[in-house]
Simulated scan of single mutants.
Amino acid sequence: MATDVLPRPGIEWRGRRLGRRLGQLAVGLWLYGSSVGLILRASLGGSPWDSLHQGLSRHLGMGVGVWMTVVGALVLLLWIPLRQRPGVGTVGNVLVLGVALDTTLAVVPVQHALAVRVPLLLAGVLLNGLATGMYIGARLGPGPRDGLMTGLHRRTGRSIRLVRTLIEATVLTAGVLLGGTVGVGTVLYALAIGPLAQFFLRWCTVPEGRAG
């Protein structure tokens, strides 16, 4: 993802834009969890983290959304030695995504026809890119997994690309070993999410400066 479209850190607590940012954050987080639910219902493979959550659910019980929340909270603990500071968006990420995911899984039935699963996968990936642009563009704090990436980048001096690749490869390996779904959707997600997030960030990032 190009750095020129990433919003600079900082939280403005005055002006009318705060209301817009909080609303955008809430919608973006819920949409993110829902889009993951659509991807999982397609059963064609999703992101490495989705595979991990699926595997944990299959082996240890509890819903996939519950494990998304638990893993997010555990990753957030790794921020402490990395000296990362969470924002309201970070906490919201942990609390909202899993609920939205399990709600979507409860509403959208299991699909068997490939003619339905493929469009479901494509819609899920597209909406996931939009959701990423919305919640990051609100500039109220990164998600636990994004913060882990940037924290390791700062502490180790390694490139964002290398750090992200190592994290995703580790998580994907764990997901595969636990029996999580991996397939064409995993490849599609890996190739598409960066460009999609970059595109939507250009439109969803709330401008800096007060609008009051």
Rank of each mutant, 00 (worst) to 15 (best):
G137Y: 05
G185V: 11
H112A: 15
G133N: 03
T132S: 13
V182S: 03
G151T: 04
A174F: 09
P195Y: 09
G209M: 10
L121P: 05
C204N: 12
L97T: 11
L130Q: 01
L148I: 07
V118N: 05
P195A: 09
T104V: 14
L191R: 02
A169N: 02
V125R: 01
G157C: 06
G194C: 10
L95Y: 02
A192T: 12
L127A: 12
P119D: 09
A138Q: 09
G157N: 05
V187R: 08
A123L: 15
G180K: 11
L177V: 15
L196K: 06
V182P: 03
C204A: 15
N128S: 12
L97M: 15
L191S: 03
T150I: 14
T103H: 01
G137I: 12
A100F: 05
P119T: 09
V171F: 11
R139L: 06
L178S: 11
T165R: 10
V182K: 02
T156Y: 02
G194Q: 08
P119R: 08
V118S: 07
V163F: 01
A115P: 00
L188F: 12
W203D: 07
T186C: 13
L105F: 04
V125K: 04
L172D: 14
R117S: 10
V125P: 02
L196D: 06
L162H: 04
L188A: 15
L105G: 08
V184K: 00
T150G: 03
T132M: 13
V206K: 01
R155E: 11
L130D: 02
V99L: 15
A131E: 07
G147F: 06
L196M: 13
L122P: 05
M149E: 04
P207C: 11
N128G: 04
P207T: 13
V125L: 13
L148F: 05
G180S: 12
V99F: 08
C204Q: 13
C204S: 13
P195F: 12
P144E: 11
Q198F: 00
L148P: 03
A123I: 12
D102S: 07
A131G: 01
G175M: 11
P144D: 10
